[in-house]
Design a protein around this nucleic acid. Structure first.
Lengths: 200, 200
DNA sequence: AGAAACAGACCGACCGGTCGGAATGATAAT
DNA sequence: ATTATCATTCCGACCGGTCGGTCTGTTTCT
């Protein structure tokens, strides 16, 4: 696709600029011209690398989801027991809220677009269902290892994902309204309190 | 404001049309002309009743939040104990998900706009903080009546609101992916399982 | 040379909002 | 009862500006 080395760098600058602008102003409020200005790139270069503004958006979405994938998988692999893994993921939330300072709003853009745009929806739903399955698998593993009571894994997974999604949305709207990292910890603690077995 | 009876009806038709179109296509993708077409109203009439497209949006937001207010208050008043009230609210979710079929997407529009538009943000945050306080008060009442353990009411309230927000967002993205009403029930059940006292 | 990468003027569509005036209907003077 | 008056309500052509995307080159590398 890119045969000259500097092409890849241009491509990357476009993606970075788009991500920042989408996060700050929203997808619709961000013009292609504005992305080009931030990236120090001409419109010709933009449309040389991407067929449309939406294509940039979709690539950002896929990168975002892919990274979330690997992060979750890494934590799961590094935890001894399932409850410990869940608690550690909640702890990860703290990092997400501070590190991804200006990055979080784009999550909202993804979700909004998914609600109206079939192409975005398909990209989103595919990953999303995997998250449900990911947590359901964790619960099952917890039941198998005896650290979690034999409840319905799917429903519990949906509760956990709901909690996570809601936390992100609230952290977005009211970043300083609470210590969202701590709320995440507490939420997971409550859930584990309810579904965890005593003999661990 | 409206001195002739038919004016009020026109105003109402505009609001209804805008709500449907915002929900279906999103705020930005909805043109004023489209709203007028749906409402069988001219552009002149539109701008006679509203100063801008955003004003319509804000009025819809305030109506939406006000109704949520009264609904929550009604349930709280009708419940004997705090845990019972919370469970009943979770049960309400079922109605929300089916009745507000096409209405839910507008919730996402509200949130997205709040993230970028100061005017929308202020309207949103005011109500939103009241919800946090509302649930925190419920928890406090529960502690006072002895049905809930003496934990931090604010954090618990934030967990509950997170769960609620996350449920709505997931119901939006994947309406048939789960029985979201039941997930709501189960989520609340877990939380109560963790924070409820045994002597009730 | 020749393909890939880039530049930026340009285009047509669209959109929020304006404006001058036409219908409507209540009120009051005749 | 009829007409004159007048604010309210509504109409829709129109405007200024923006935006995504195209196109015709020019530059940069192999």
């Amino acid at each position: 696709m890119s045969q000259q080395p500097r092409a890849e760098e241009t491509r990357s600058r476009i993606l970075t600029a788009a991500q920042e602008s989408f996060a700050r102003y929203g997808y619709d409020a961000t013009g292609v011209a504005e992305i080009c200005r931030l990236a120090n790139v001409s419109k010709g270069a933009f449309y040389h690398h991407f067929p449309s503004k939406q294509a940039v958006f979709l690539e950002l979405l896929n990168r975002w989801l892919a990274e979330l994938d690997t992060q979750l998988e890494t934590v799961r692999a590094s935890a001894e027991t399932v409850p410990e893994g869940l608690v550690r993921m909640a702890g990860m939330a703290r990092l997400v809220f501070q590190a991804a300072d200006g990055q979080l709003p784009i999550f909202l853009e993804f979700w909004t677009k998914a609600a109206h745009d079939p192409a975005v929806w398909q990209a989103m739903i595919a990953h999303y269902r995997r998250y449900q399955a990911f947590f359901a698998d964790m619960i099952k593993a917890g039941i198998a290892e005896g650290t979690i009571l034999p409840i319905e894994p799917e429903t519990t997974a949906q509760v956990i994902v709901s909690l996570a999604v809601g936390l992100v949305l609230q952290g977005l709207l009211d970043p300083h309204g609470a210590d969202w990292g701590q709320v995440a910890q507490e939420g997971i603690r409550m859930i584990l309190d309810s579904i965890g077995s005593n003999d661990q």
